[in-house]
Nucleic acid binder design. Structure first.
Lengths: 310, 310
DNA sequence: ACCTATCATGCACCTATTGCGCATGGTTAT
DNA sequence: ATAACCATGCGCAATAGGTGCATGATAGGT
């Protein structure tokens, strides 16, 4: 119920370029340009200035965007309360999630909703966490399941979002099947200090988790190889190129020459998986039910894999 | 920046019928009907129910409308703050006012704004106080100068508006020129207790003022005639049909056979003239400047007519 | 210093939203 | 029973708002 052009402005404020805004909102660049111009005309404010080959928010623009956070939140709250009060049904529901999270958590959620609310059309978008937040702002999705990351551009207390912890997905070690430690049940990070490690590229989502885990135990691992996909990493490990960390939610599939070991000791790395919604919308019945389902799914995942007793 | 359809719903919540909403917003009844239907579709809420030959808000609808008050106010605040922060100029400004108020206060305001802000298009609408509030809700006007009335449908603390007192316009007595008291400078209400009074129709804007004035001094006046226009009332008085109360701002024009006397004593009736704006918008520079001009104009009116010393 | 990639934006064209007028059907009041 | 009133559906027209391409401007690479 907030004017689309203001939403567009907010997305622009995030990504800084008309083209990116267009890509994110689903409009063409021309449309975004026109919308922003219209917005300025209607409000009688100059919100943008030319800056090099791009455009940049003016002070007024930044002010407006900053202030609109509470406005959006207020609307979401109102909407949620009205839905609650009149127990109305929503017609569309957009979900966003990242790789394994999407597969393991979002798929059951979508399936459940599809059966409990037949006339609700659920749409799932796979996207990385940062983009999920963008999609939330752009109102393309209503709920995102992502991996919480420290030092992200989106803080945990961003006024635009509300986040709920779903589960801590522990990281396991994967070893070549012929590795000396492969027969063990568990292993500590210290025992693997001198191994050649296979990790993601520096700066990627999980790389910081990787380093954090080792700094916690005071060890500096040697990074031998880098991979971007879990599958690739597993293949590398299977080829005997080194060892790696794999979230427990990520399936090992049919990698016969790779074993998965749980980590014990004080360095027990985990990735925190959270659900994020637009601030205010959390009171919505649909969001509530979804969070409930996600929590239950998360619990089920943790209990059907009874580990981590220490 | 709030969706037009929500504005329309709010207007509908005021007047209760699609036709009246159409008249107030400037749309056709079909358009209002379509807008409300669209709103329900987009939000996925049932906001209206058939009720006899009309439609009625559902509980959800009422809830939404009630909650939207703060949303609108929040937006107005944000808009005002942004205008203030970036000292931007507004392009359109709608004023509403009632009869003498409009003439005496709004006309100077419009004239001043026209000279100080040449590229601002000012629109003045004459409308009665109740309609002025409706027009504010409908966003047809941005500022209204009205006569404050107790027991109106719009309370002084309505969450949708903010009101500023401009002046208390005292009521004078008008007498036929040949009346025994006509030569006096001042008169008390008690002295006129037994006169035949000419007033507006019961239930009208000023009738309550009339009765309030007399109950204050413990006198029950005899109402002989009723008129709806000041001019008519003055003509009645001129014809010797009785006496009446006339706001000081209302000009006597060329009524040669009528004299105007000030009222002394403890019953000194006055009509309170206030400016009303949508809540939140009061911080806007344009509104601020307008209120300033109105206050000054009101002061000038009161001082150039130096009276009321008791 | 040129060339190229990148961006925003204007223009021409098109679509579909959206508003209006009129007619219809349902409902209350006389 | 008839009349008045109200909301709404339908056909039609206008226009707001979309896309795609071309243009102009700028930064960076060579």
């Amino acid at each position: 119920m907030i004017d689309q052009r203001l939403i567009t402005l907010r997305v622009f404020a995030r990504c800084g370029t008309v083209g990116a805004t267009a890509e994110l909102t689903g409009y063409s660049p021309s449309a975004v340009s026109a919308q922003l111009r219209e917005l300025q005309r209607v409000l009688g404010m100059q919100l943008l200035t030319k800056d090099g080959r791009g455009v940049r928010l003016t002070a007024t623009g930044r002010f407006l965007v900053a202030g609109s956070d509470t406005l959006i939140a207020e609307w979401e709250t109102l909407r949620a309360a009205a839905m609650e009060a009149g127990d109305q049904v929503q017609s569309h529901f957009g979900l966003g999630g990242f790789s394994t999270a999407a597969a393991q958590l979002l798929a059951p959620l979508a399936a459940t909703l599809r059966s409990t609310r037949p006339l609700l059309e659920v749409q799932v978008l796979e996207a990385n966490p940062s983009r999920c937040f963008d999609l939330l702002v752009a109102e393309r999705i209503d709920l995102a399941v992502i991996v919480a990351m420290q030092s992200d551009t989106y803080g945990e207390d961003d006024p635009r979002f509300e986040q709920t912890v779903l589960l801590d997905d522990p990281l396991d070690v994967i070893l070549p099947a012929d590795h000396p430690l492969a027969a063990r049940q568990t292993v500590t990070l210290e025992e693997l200090a001198s191994e050649p490690w296979i990790t993601e590229a520096a700066g990627s989502t999980y790389h910081s988790l990787f380093t954090a885990a080792f700094t916690a135990v005071g060890v500096t691992p040697r990074i031998a190889h880098e991979a971007v996909e879990w599958e690739t990493q597993i293949a590398f490990v299977g080829a005997g190129l080194g060892v790696g960390l794999l979230p427990r939610l990520a399936p090992l599939h049919s990698a016969e020459n790779v074993v998965r070991l749980r980590i014990t000791g004080k360095g027990k790395p985990a990735r925190r998986i959270v659900a994020a919604v637009r601030r205010g919308s959390i009171a919505s019945p649909l969001i509530q039910e979804s969070l409930d389902i996600l929590q239950k799914t998360a619990q089920r995942i943790l209990t059907t894999r009874p580990e981590d007793e220490a």
